[in-house]
Amino acid sequence: MASLLAVLPSDPLPPQWLNLRTYWLLAVVLVALAITWLVGFLLERRHGANVDTALLRRLNHRVKAWWLMAAILVLGFLLQRPGTVLLFGLVSFWALREFVTMTPTRRGDHRALFWTFMIITPLQYLLIGLGSNAPRWLTKGQETDLYSLYSIMIPVYATLFVPARIAFSGDAKRFLERTAKILAALLICVYSLSFAPALLNLRLTTSNGQPWSGSPVSVLFFLVLIAQLADVLQFAWTRLAGKTPVAPAINASRTWEGLGGSLVTTALIGGALYWATPFQPWEAALMSMLVAAMAFAGGLTMSAIKRDRGVTDTGTLVVGHPGLLDRIDNVCFAAPVFYHLTRFFFTA
């Protein structure tokens, strides 16, 4: 790693995996989580007094999911970059499983699905895991970032391969619909989400081109945190002031007021956390606002898919157990946009 960095004259300080800012961000998150958990716990104890139990159960369930998410992220960070990419890969795999289970497929899709699960998904994360450390025979000794491969692997190769593989199996019934289902699953669960760990491959600078000495881990953490916050703030604003649902036929609990409130408050919190990222405060606020908008779009899109399938949650075939995909749809939609804007404006 050190020799690799030596060829880059613009990097006076080698970026560390975890540094003080990462620990601070982690501490802030853990304290906030602990407070939320404590509030939920205390409210549950004085059960009955003006407390909406359904709401409380929802809150406590969410907090439990967040602890798990934080634990997974921290475990990933302890296992360094390959570990983080691997854990995100497993999350993608599970989300894909939930998605495809929810949407009916036909016998003729089996082989295409096998490729999707066993070849395309692992390959995407393998390419991201390799990042700029690709094997010599692939790069011919030049320093290459595999971005040019993993950013198009699914849009170009998988998008053409999947319909062709289904056609080879010889079942024409509802062909376009079946192809679209598998491709949408790949796009949302694998391609989009994979850009979250891909953030770790970026060599970040500030917006005026100065190299940034912080750790990309805190930028990844920032993304996940802001996406989750946006969701919860949207929910809170809808409870407080929600009047006009965006799409009442799809999801009555996503309102314009909730979206507006979430955009503003997420931007404020994101701006206040700018020190964890290479962004200026106003840049961090704008990025957070964008993440909030994408998180909302992601939730609404998944709601539409679930409503069409007649289910409330994606988790299992059993009603009433929220799945993994219900919790990460916001990150799925925010990650590729966040990644590409960061790449465009904040890398050398």
Binding site: R97, E98, V100, T101, H110, R111, L113, F114, T316, V318
Partner: peptide
């Protein structure tokens, strides 16, 4: 008639 399983969820 298939050899390779696709790991979906079941109940």
């Amino acid at each position: 008639g298939e050899v390779f399983p696709v790991p979906l969820l079941s109940s």
